[in-house]
Amino acid sequence: MAIVVEHEKRKREILAKAMELFCRDGYEDVTFKKIADACGITRTTLYIYFRSKHEVFNFSIKQLTSDLEVNFLKIIKDPAITAEACLRRITSEAIDACVSNKSLFEILVPYLNGLYKAGENVYDRVKRRTIRITHLLSMIIIRGQKNGEFRKFSVKAANDLLFGLIVESIFKMAVLHDIEVSAVKASLNLAIDGLLAKRPEN
């Protein structure tokens, strides 16, 4: 068990160093050897953890989405939190996570553009990485509809709206280098307001 823990710890250390390089030099200029050198290990040792710089970068994305999923599941599984509060909290924390990982998204945009030019299906790649998060959003919306907190509407449309606002904030941050966190959160809360069932007047 200790070996597994040490292996995961080393993996995270490599990812952290690699991300520093990607952010400083850009994805294209980072080599597998540069990553190994920055970590103070040989390329042979680095191959134990990753097969290529492409895999290192992909694992960074996977780690971010996995961490978000774990955090979101904790919120969703708390029976004391209403569907409305859950949705507001998760969308807010998603924006905070985007801001915290701003450098990663700045690299991700040209990286995905490079894949597109190489003939890769970028949409499917992104969808694979985000499908579980969008599924969690759908779970909350369905729960809110079942308990009467949310109106009856297309779950997919609501999911697309909320997720679209999050993606827009990533675009503004990574491409335009500008994001007003409070404004994005206000837009998300306004969208959630529109999902709420009409409450009886006192």
Rank of each mutant, 00 (worst) to 15 (best):
residue 73 L to H: 09
residue 15 L to Q: 06
residue 8 E to M: 12
residue 12 R to K: 04
residue 43 R to Q: 11
residue 68 L to D: 03
residue 47 Y to H: 15
residue 51 R to A: 15
residue 68 L to S: 08
residue 72 F to R: 01
residue 50 F to S: 03
residue 17 K to G: 09
residue 34 K to E: 04
residue 42 T to H: 00
residue 26 G to C: 02
residue 90 I to Y: 03
residue 57 F to Y: 15
residue 6 E to K: 09
residue 78 D to Q: 07
residue 55 E to N: 06
residue 76 I to R: 10
residue 26 G to K: 11
residue 94 A to Y: 04
residue 90 I to E: 09
residue 34 K to A: 15
residue 10 R to L: 15
residue 86 C to L: 02
residue 93 E to D: 15
residue 64 L to E: 05
residue 61 I to H: 11
residue 85 A to W: 03
residue 69 E to N: 05
residue 91 T to Q: 00
residue 38 A to Y: 07
residue 61 I to W: 04
residue 96 D to I: 02
residue 80 A to K: 13
residue 3 I to F: 13
residue 80 A to P: 01
residue 10 R to K: 15
residue 96 D to M: 06
residue 89 R to N: 02
residue 29 D to L: 05
residue 9 K to L: 04
residue 87 L to H: 00
residue 45 T to C: 00
residue 64 L to M: 13
residue 20 E to D: 15
residue 12 R to C: 01
residue 74 K to D: 07
residue 18 A to N: 09
residue 55 E to Y: 08
residue 2 A to L: 13
residue 29 D to K: 08
residue 26 G to H: 11
residue 84 E to A: 05
residue 7 H to L: 11
residue 83 A to T: 01
residue 37 D to Q: 11
residue 52 S to T: 11
residue 34 K to Y: 01
residue 21 L to P: 02
residue 95 I to G: 06
residue 20 E to Y: 04
residue 50 F to R: 03
residue 49 Y to H: 09
residue 84 E to M: 00
residue 8 E to H: 11
residue 77 K to C: 05
residue 42 T to W: 06
residue 92 S to P: 04
residue 49 Y to P: 02
residue 16 A to E: 15
residue 41 I to T: 07
residue 30 V to F: 05
residue 81 I to G: 04
residue 3 I to E: 13
residue 63 Q to H: 06
residue 39 C to H: 07
residue 94 A to H: 00
residue 32 F to Y: 15
residue 70 V to T: 07
residue 86 C to D: 04
residue 29 D to E: 08
residue 17 K to Q: 11
